[in-house]
């Protein structure tokens, strides 16, 4: 009885006639188009059912208003850049990972696509006038998963071509790699691939490509010369985690040359207090979310320190068999 995914497209008056909006709408020929004044009229309605929306999300095409670029969060790895920023060309994600913090962050599971990327580009150029910039563009979403619809990754890569002071990170779980096949590789575009054991993917990362598909894409992209970071993040404390993660690492490094990776980052599951509270309310039966986490002094819920240390320590040691230690970055819940 549920409608199909993207059966409805909500279009902000400000952008509905833009070329990008039209191009995206053309991908959904059967969708109902509804004009709205502001994306929040749909996205921030009261009493929305996040879980139901996640099953059949709608698309909202909107204009991003300032701030267009945000300073990076301390909960995430900024890779020692002093000028770490992120921007969201989209809100929400096509995928449905059980542990995702977006489940507690937004009032709606509908996807918002901001189509005024030129304004974001201009903002980045202004920042580049005064200092180099490390920019995450796949924040609060998985940009590559929606690339066939938006083409945004391709636009970002083109933007990076003549801006060596811009270091771009595209974080993804997707296996879609067309934007990397059609251009020569760039040193200043890092593709940060999140990997999980197949067991975790099948049970807790609904809609994402399997491990084999991700590895195949990574391998291809690395062969072409693109810098790739592997993110084993979040590591989940699941039954038999020791064996499951060991087999996972074996499979990863059977396929990928560890020494040719730009880096490997490992982080245990962590989530801010407010997001966890809301995500738990929405998903009362998620064992992953209902683990009795401990609140650290930064207001972040994480596994108890002894467990987090064990998980990260063990994994780091195992990864070190394949990857030079200076390329391994551990991210704990107490990393400032």
């Amino acid at each position: 009885m549920l409608t199909k995914r993207f059966s409805h497209i909500y279009l902000e008056d400000d952008v509905r006639n833009t070329e990008t909006a039209r191009r995206i709408c053309a991908k959904f020929p059967g969708a109902q188009q509804i004009r709205i004044r502001h994306y929040k009229d749909v996205f921030c309605r009261k009493r929305q059912d996040f879980c139901l929306q996640k099953l059949a999300p709608k698309l909202i095409i909107a204009k991003k208003r300032p701030p267009l670029v945000y300073p990076g969060s301390t909960n995430c790895d900024s890779f020692e850049s002093n000028h770490f920023y992120y921007t969201s060309s989209m809100m929400n994600c096509l995928y449905d990972c059980e542990y995702c913090y977006l489940k507690g962050m937004y009032p709606s599971a509908n996807l918002v696509v901001f189509v005024n990327h030129e304004e974001i580009f201009e903002e980045i150029d202004r920042k580049l006038e005064s200092h180099p910039v490390y920019l995450c563009v796949s924040y609060d979403t998985d940009l590559l998963s929606f690339e066939a619809i938006t083409g945004f990754v391709d636009l970002w890569i083109a933007f990076c071509e003549d801006r060596p002071d811009l270091l771009l990170e595209i974080r993804t779980k997707a296996a879609f790699i067309r934007p990397f096949l059609t251009r020569p590789p760039l040193e200043n575009v890092i593709i940060a691939w999140s990997l999980s054991p197949e067991y975790v993917i099948r049970n807790h990362e609904r809609g994402t490509p399997g491990l084999a598909a991700r590895l195949k894409s990574i391998k291809r992209v690395m062969e072409l010369g693109w810098p790739v970071r592997i993110c084993i993040d979040p590591v989940l404390f699941i039954d038999n985690w020791d064996r499951i993660y060991q087999e996972f690492l074996d499979e990863v490094f059977l396929n990928l040359a560890g020494d040719q990776l730009a880096s490997v980052s490992i982080g245990a599951f962590r989530i801010s207090k407010g997001y966890l509270k809301r995500a738990r309310r929405r998903y009362p039966c998620s064992r992953i979310l209902h683990y009795p986490f401990e609140l650290n002094r930064n207001g972040v819920y994480c596994y108890p320190p002894f467990l987090e240390d064990k998980i990260l320590g063990d994994l780091a040691q195992r990864v070190a068999r394949f990857v030079p230690t200076e390329k391994i970055r551990l991210f704990t819940s107490s990393t400032p």
């Binding site: 549920l2 409608t3 409805h8 909500y10 509804i34 709205i36 309605r45 929306q53 709608k58």
Partner: peptide, 27 residues
């Protein structure tokens, strides 16, 4: 209705169109 506007206040109300139906959608 996929969108309802109150003429007097100008306020808009947007139902979540989650259920399949055989009818024409309108504002």
């Amino acid at each position: 209705a996929n969108k309802i506007t109150d003429h007097d206040s100008g306020r808009c109300f947007i139902p979540d169109m989650m259920w399949r139906h055989p009818f024409q959608e309108v504002s």
